[in-house]
Design a binder for these strands. Structure first.
Lengths: 303, 303
DNA sequence: AATCATTTTTGTCCTAGACAAATTGTTTGC
DNA sequence: GCAAACAATTTGTCTAGGACAAAAATGATT
């Protein structure tokens, strides 16, 4: 059980660190320090893979490899995110309630979690459920994950179950109204979908006609899709983990390929600390998203 | 309209051919034959990238690179699948019916597609809906996409809508029974989820207790999750696009970190042409998956 | 405190050689 | 004629170090 070793290709897949990086670190810092198999090829013990994953996580939070390499495992484990978090308002749900939901996930009680969430949905109604339960819960999970108090598979379970709840809830909404038509998606390298689903739920509730395209659409394809579907608005979501330096450039490019009459709305944790961009509607919160729909309708009436 | 050139990293992401392979082909066959930028780095013209994509597709169909390299573009285009694909059984649905569903997607009629699929689900029942509608439809979309007769955003729309239909259908199934407990997921860099959902639907129908963890779980996390959830079986899916060379190694290593009592079942288009691996249950089709559940139950009874 | 220039850090790309696994081709035996 | 055993070829992945540009940190100057 202990003497399991992984090839460099598997470690690349598992950690997200390229083969080049793994070899370069070994050369430069002396870690990782894999054994060699009969063919002289690297064979990484699982302990080293764990450590690499930890290092990768801390790097994603803004730490630099050179410092991390010769730090002990204990210190690494205790290391906090380097970039200061965004201060958070306490929404309508009490921390205790949210904690009990998180505990269900950490207890791996999938059925219990789903049931508890269904109950909350019934009690709060869709809009408050999204704003006061799903949104803060998602933020808490993100934080817990950065702190390392959530396992990867627990985060996956949370994401998968919550996605299902939202999609199911959206499906029960009436689809009679049909304006504005909103195309929902995210750019390549942005796989997070829960933010999009929350917005879709709220927009559908407001009577918009939502077209969900999933995540990771190439920019040119977003423009094509907007044309093909005759979308009034393209809505993008950026998670907090997305490299924010790249966002303004991306949006400008997308703005240029989109028809001028198509609105470009951007939200999510990664969008909240952006400067204004011409022709882009930055939505700092779910509340703003809802009022943006109202405002759009008013503008249409006057035109 | 200048000749646009792509870096090797972009070509890797775009074609699915690793940097090593791209460089090796250049060395061996003289193709691709990229230009060099000011830093001496490879710069691939878009025409060559197109050709590489075509070659990759033919290779996925069983052709060998050595033959393809010095074949003209015209001949390549006219080339048929070599090894007869999975015995392309004409399932219960007529090609005409499938085509009309595809036409709805190509007409960007999201609502119409959902309605038509709901109808089929009601008419066929879950099992036949999955086997005779979703499975062949998914295969057709994959083929159409490779041929280029489907836009990227059309494929995204199809995937998103079909995911929703399946999840919704799964949610309506009763969850009373509870054995075996099956953990469903995929390895890193394998983002395709529809195959997993089809299996989940069929397994749930058979009374199994499915725990969906979404896609792209690191190997060590899969093992942890299996322990935490006390799973009887871990079920993985590999799409046809996944680099098949790496699959055996991945499975062997996963097999070693999993508890010996936990079954490891593998399916999907990428798994269908694998050789037998010790301790791994290869499922060549959805039918096999269902019968594997039955067999598992029999084996449990005798133990 | 903010801007600019310099140094360090870090990831990606390069060449070219080696070899194992998979596939194909050939021979042998029945 | 067909199957099994062996040999040859094809193909992908790994290895080693060297080079360099982009990003980040540091120091200097306003």
């Amino acid at each position: 059980m202990e003497n399991i070793h992984f090839s460099i290709a598997v470690v690349e897949r598992d950690t997200g660190l390229s083969k080049d990086v793994l070899r370069m670190w070994e050369r430069r810092y002396g870690f990782p320090d894999p054994q060699r198999d009969a063919n002289g090829e690297r064979a990484y013990p699982s302990a080293q893979v764990e450590r690499l994953r930890l290092i990768k996580r801390l790097m994603d939070q803004g730490h630099r490899p050179g410092k991390l390499m010769n730090t002990s495992d204990e210190e690494l484990g205790a290391m906090a995110p380097r970039r200061p978090q965004v201060p958070q308002e306490t929404n309508g749900s009490s921390p205790a309630e949210l904690n009990s939901l998180l505990d269900l996930i950490k207890g791996h009680d999938a059925a219990g979690y789903q049931q508890a969430m269904q109950q909350r949905l019934a009690r709060q109604g869709m809009q408050r459920f999204v704003q006061d339960t799903v949104a803060p819960l998602t933020r808490r999970v993100g934080e817990a994950w950065e702190e390392g108090s959530f396992e990867v598979f627990e985060e996956h379970l949370f994401t998968e179950l919550t996605k299902r709840l939202l999609r199911q809830a959206i499906a029960t909404l009436p689809g009679n109204q049909r304006s504005p038509r909103v195309l929902l998606t995210s750019v390549p390298d942005e796989p997070h979908v829960i933010g999009l689903l929350m917005v879709e739920a709220l927009f559908t509730l407001e009577g918009a006609d939502c077209i969900p395209l999933g995540t990771q659409m190439p920019l040119l394809e977003i423009a094509r899709a907007a044309g093909a579907h005759q979308a009034d608005i393209v809505a993008l979501s950026f998670s907090i983990a997305f490299p924010h330096r790249q966002i303004p450039g991306l949006l400008q490019q997308l703005r240029m390929v989109l028809p001028a009459t198509t609105g470009l709305w951007v939200g999510g944790g990664g969008a909240s600390r952006l400067n204004k961009i011409d022709g882009v509607n930055l939505l700092g919160s779910l509340d703003e998203a809802i009022s943006a729909i109202t405002r759009w309708r008013e503008e249409q009436r006057t035109v």
